[in-house]
């Protein structure tokens, strides 16, 4: 009996937690969460959503508009676009995450170095971050592609490097804000060692903004990498990657709109969902 009531308590706790999460997210947040869950399933197990083969060519089915058999239509070689979009999630999200990892990883290191290091280092790095803002992300990415050549790996590297200054600058600002705050001063006056102050106060508090920035950042990185793919500088067309699919569809824009619109919608939906959730995180659950 007690087990039953325990289960009941647990169930009500779970339902309350769900309601709490729902309330905190609001309906745009819920829609975003559901969308992201679909994207995650597509990344982890694309066959569950799309059993077809994304690379299977059937020339007689080329340029089919969306229909029950091919919900997103087919491309110039008769490949099923729905399968391609679902299977493309893994490489697009993977590329976005890798670029984000480079940007936010190195950015955080430099930001911490500037925020915690000696004054001259902060002045130097701060100046460099400020100055690098003069180069827009895509411009900086193109600069690196000109140096190392085009390709999927270069576009990860280029977008990663191009986003470093933004993250570094953000983290530097938040670390400096926290360092100047009262509780850090008290801890220091209390004789707490600098390492402990960093680990217990500065790092956790400055990493939280980074979590929301990273959520926003994945969506942005996916969009940037897709932009490079759209410009013909990313993954090569046969592989199912959203940006490369857009580039392939560009030529047929006026005759086969679905080749551009379907992968494009996948990118917009993923980026929008991540943006909504990231903004919620940034405001601590309140509507942004």
């Amino acid at each position: 009996m007690s087990a039953v009531s325990e289960a009941g308590v647990r169930a009500s706790r779970v339902s309350r937690a769900v309601a709490g999460v729902g309330g905190a997210l609001g309906w745009p947040g819920l829609v975003s969460a559901v969308l992201l869950a679909c994207v995650l399933i597509a990344v982890a197990a694309p066959h569950l959503l799309a059993p077809g083969n994304p690379l299977e060519v059937s020339p007689s089915d080329a340029f089919q508009p969306p229909s029950p058999a091919h919900p997103f239509g087919t491309d110039e070689s008769g490949r099923d676009l729905y399968s391609r979009v679902v299977h493309g999630a893994r490489s697009s999200v993977g590329i976005g995450l890798s670029a984000l990892g480079i940007g936010i990883g190195i950015g955080a290191l430099l930001g911490f170095a500037a925020g915690l290091g000696p004054r001259w280092l902060d002045a130097l790095l701060g100046r460099v971050f400020e100055v690098l803002f003069a180069l827009p992300t895509l411009v900086m990415a193109l600069l690196f592609i000109a140096i190392i050549g085009a390709g999927p790996r270069s576009s990860i590297l280029a977008i990663g490097i191009a986003t470093i200054p933004g993250y570094a600058r953000m983290l530097r600002a938040s670390v400096r804000g926290i360092r100047a705050s009262g509780y850090v001063e008290y801890a220091r006056l209390d004789g707490v060692s600098p390492v402990r102050v960093f680990a217990r106060h500065v790092a956790p508090n400055s990493l939280w903004p980074l979590v929301s920035a990273a959520t926003l950042g994945i969506g942005q990185a996916i969009v940037w990498v897709a932009a490079l793919g759209f410009l013909g500088l990313g993954a090569l067309p046969p592989s199912p990657e959203w940006g490369a699919m857009l580039n392939a569809g560009r030529v047929y824009l006026t005759t086969a709109w679905w080749m551009t619109v379907c992968p494009g919608l996948a990118i917009v939906a993923t980026a929008a969902a991540l943006t909504v959730l990231g903004r919620r995180l940034a405001t601590g659950g309140r509507a942004a």
Binding site: A227, T260, G264, V268, A271, T275, R279
Partner: peptide
């Protein structure tokens, strides 16, 4: 606002052309 601010230009432009 949210939709406009996250729509990539390569997609928006393609839709406008269409």
């Amino acid at each position: 606002e949210t939709v406009a601010s996250v729509t990539p230009q390569f997609f928006l432009g393609a839709v406008l052309i269409l």
